[in-house]
């Protein structure tokens, strides 16, 4: 049926490949520029004409970031907060998802709608009451302030994601436990959790990303340099050392590393997490 060899056909294929290369430049040039600038000196970044590959390759920007305990602390804070929130979110969302997936109860439909709609509440709306709460409970500028407020934003989506996963597991599995006289609690931990690992990983990836990227609450609910996270650290770097662009790019590369690694290693889970809420 296909007429592969006509001239017109070949032209279309060539045009498509040209367009693909143009698309590739659009998508990746800014990222490439960040990467290559992080290996340049500050003067070379603005050299005329621009150098595509670093002419004098240097690691000085990375050395400056990694040799500065203040900046390492930003990374520690980001990892610490993101891991803690991820563990808490997994645990709490798993319980809720189990309730949604395995039981029928009054109010199930409206609770589900409530959880879907909380996903779109603007962070700026909650920021002002959170600020009031955080100050009055004297947890301003602490990890607790960040962990608790992040949880509110990670939880709804995590519940939906986990419920979706649990719904794909056959009910006979936990019903077998009930027949043997076990409670639903035993069924959850003995049967469901061990086979839910893919769902838990997808939820964790998504939660981690959300925490790692968070900016507004970290900006407002912390104050001392030792409590700041990576995104705020980058902003501080921008203000302090009037435009040490190579350091800023090196810090951006280091700050993107966890996301890039997760994406390359666990692409399937990553995309599952990022699109589940929107496609369903």
């Amino acid at each position: 049926m296909r007429k592969r060899h006509t001239t017109k056909d070949r032209l279309i294929t060539v045009a498509l490949h040209v367009a693909l290369v143009a698309g590739l430049l659009f998508a990746t040039f800014p990222i490439y520029w960040m990467l290559s600038s992080s290996f340049k000196s500050n003067t070379e970044i603005f050299a005329l004409p621009p150098t595509i590959l670093p002419k004098a390759f240097t690691l000085e920007a990375y050395a400056a970031i990694l040799g500065d305990p203040v900046k390492l602390r930003f990374f520690f804070n980001s990892y610490f907060v993101a891991f803690t929130v991820t563990i808490l979110t997994d645990l709490i969302a798993l319980l809720a998802a189990y309730g949604f997936s395995r039981f029928n109860f009054r109010g199930k439909g409206s609770l589900n709608t409530l959880i879907i709609s909380t996903q779109t509440i603007p962070p700026i709306t909650l920021l002002i009451p959170f600020f009031g709460l955080v100050v009055s409970y004297r947890i301003f500028d602490t990890y607790v302030a960040l962990i608790v407020t992040y949880l509110v934003f990670t939880l709804p989506y995590a519940i939906l994601l986990m419920t979706g996963y649990l719904n794909t597991l056959p009910r006979d599995l936990d019903e077998a436990v009930a027949v043997d006289g076990g409670t639903s609690w035993t069924a959850l931990w003995r049967v469901i959790v061990p086979i839910s690992l893919p769902g838990i990983v997808a939820t964790s990836v998504y939660t981690f990303l959300l925490c790692w990227n968070e900016f507004l609450f970290a900006l407002t609910l912390t104050k001392s340099t030792s409590m700041r996270t990576v995104p705020i650290g980058i902003q501080l770097l921008m203000g302090q050392h009037a435009f040490e662009w190579n350091q800023m790019m090196a810090m951006s590369v280091l700050g993107s590393l966890p996301l890039l690694l997760i994406y390359l290693i666990a692409q399937r889970f990553f995309l599952a997490g990022m699109t589940a809420g929107s496609v369903k």
């Binding site: 990222i31 790692w212 990227n213 900016f215 790019m249 951006s252 993107s256 996301l259 994406y263």
Partner: peptide, 10 residues
Amino acid sequence: LFTAVIIAVI
């Protein structure tokens, strides 16, 4: 994959 802050800086 990039955080809004990093997109802004880039």
